[in-house]
Computed example of a mutant assay.
Amino acid sequence: MRVLLALGGNAMTNAEGRARPEDQIAAAATAARAVAELVQDGHEVVITHGNGPQVGNLLVKNELAAAVVPPVPLDWCGAQTQATLGFVLMNALEAEFAMRGVQRRTATVVTRTLVAWDDPGFVHPTKPIGRYLAADEAAVLIEHGETWEDRGVKGWRRVVASPEPLEIVDAPAVVALIGAGFLVIANGGGGVPVVVDADGALHGVEAVIDKDLGAALLAQRVGADVLVIATDVPHVVEGYDTPDPRPLHHVRQRRLRELADRGEFAAGSMGPKVEAVLRFTAATGSHAAICALSDIVEAVDGTAGTVVAADDESTAVEI
C-alpha cells in the first residue's frame, strides 16, 4: 500500500517537548525505525510532519532580534523548518535503511500550499502562535506589521490567519519522485501558504495552515491508500475529560462525523485530526487511522489506534 504518514509535532521533540537539535535528531531516529519497518513490509511511504516547536524557536529569535533586524516572515519560517526537518529525517531514515540493508533513496520537497487571498482568516486572524510577551516587547513587532492581542495577565500574543488549504502546489513533484523510487518528505507544517496575485504569480503569506488538513489533502493528491496520523495518544476518545471516557477503536465515517459535529473533539488538539481523516475517507473511500507514534506499523494494518472506515468499506467494525 501507499501510506501517507503524518508525524505530529511531538514526533520531532523529546518526551518533555524540548526541541533542541539533539532532541530532534533522536526523535527522528525513533520515527525512522517505524518507517523502515513499513518499507520492509513492502509499503510505499510518504511522510509529512508538524513544525510547531521549530517555528516557535524561530519566532523567539525574531522577537529577540526585532530591534536590530527585521523579523523573518512566517512563510519563510515554514520553508526553513521544512528543509531542516527534511534534512534530519532523511539522515535518520537512510541510517536506518543502511542498518537493515534496505535500498531506498530519500528526498525532501519544500512544498507550497495554495490558499485563497480572501479567506476569512486574513480579515480576522485568530490562530495564536509563539509565546506571550510584555506590551512593550509586542509593540516592537506590531511596528513591523504583525498582529498581536492583549491576553490579560499572561501578556500579549501574536495571532495569524489559518486559511483553508485548497491545493498542494508541488504535489506533481512529489508524485514524480515517488515514481522514481524515492521515499519523499513533503508539505511539512501543512505547507508554505501561498496565494495567487492579480498577475497569476504565487507569493507567500503570513499564515499557518493546519498540518493535519494539509496531510489529508496531500494524501489525496499522491494517491495514498491509507492516511495515518501519528500523535501522542493511542486513540481518539469519546467523552474525553469526563467520568466515562470511551476510546474509539474501529469506527465508521458517519459515526465519527456525528461525534465531531456535536463538539466531542477539541478544536486545538484532536479536532483537526478527526476532520482530516474524515475528509480523506470521504474523498477516497479508503481507511485512515489516528494512533500513537509507537503504533504506526499496526495502524497501517488496521490493528491499532482509531481506525476510520468509509461508510461503504467492509473492513472495519462499527462501534
Rank of each mutant, 00 (worst) to 15 (best):
M1L: 13
R2S: 10
V3W: 01
L4Q: 08
L5I: 06
G8T: 01
N10G: 11
M12T: 07
T13N: 04
E16V: 06
G17F: 04
G17N: 05
R18D: 14
A19W: 06
A19V: 02
A26Y: 01
A32H: 02
A36S: 11
E44D: 14
I47H: 04
T48E: 04
H49L: 07
P53S: 15
V55N: 05
L58T: 07
V60I: 15
K61T: 15
N62D: 15
P71N: 13
P73E: 09
P73W: 11
L74A: 04
L74D: 00
D75K: 05
G78D: 06
Q82W: 03
T84M: 14
G86S: 01
G86C: 03
V88R: 07
V88H: 04
A92K: 06
A98W: 08
V102L: 15
V102R: 11
R105W: 06
T106W: 06
T108N: 00
T108M: 01
V110H: 04
R112D: 11
R112I: 12
T113A: 15
W117L: 14
R131K: 13
Y132N: 11
A134K: 12
D136V: 08
E137P: 02
A138M: 11
L141I: 11
E143S: 12
G145D: 05
E146S: 11
E146D: 08
G152K: 00
V153I: 12
W156I: 08
R157W: 03
V159C: 07
V159P: 03
V160T: 07
S162F: 00
E164D: 06
L166M: 15
I168T: 02
P172H: 07
L177A: 10
I178L: 12
G179S: 10
V184D: 10
V184M: 12
N187M: 06
N187C: 15
V192Y: 03
P193C: 07
V195L: 02
D197M: 14
A198P: 01
D199P: 05
D199S: 15
G200A: 05
A201F: 15
V205R: 04
E206W: 08
A207V: 02
A207K: 00
I209D: 02
I209G: 04
D210W: 05
D210R: 04
K211D: 03
D212E: 13
L213N: 09
A215D: 02
A216M: 14
R221G: 01
R221V: 00
G223W: 06
A224G: 06
V226D: 04
V228K: 08
V228M: 03
T231E: 02
D232S: 12
P234M: 09
P234T: 09
P234R: 10
P234D: 13
V236Y: 06
E238V: 13
E238M: 14
Y240D: 09
D241F: 14
P243C: 04
P243H: 10
P247A: 13
P247G: 13
E258C: 10
E258D: 14
A260E: 11
A260T: 03
D261F: 05
G263T: 14
F265S: 12
S269H: 09
P272V: 04
V277C: 00
V277T: 07
R279P: 01
A282R: 14
A282F: 08
H287L: 14
A288K: 12
I290M: 05
I290G: 02
I290K: 03
L293Q: 12
A299F: 07
A299N: 04
G302S: 10
A304P: 00
A304H: 06
G305W: 01
V308Y: 03
V308E: 00
D312A: 13
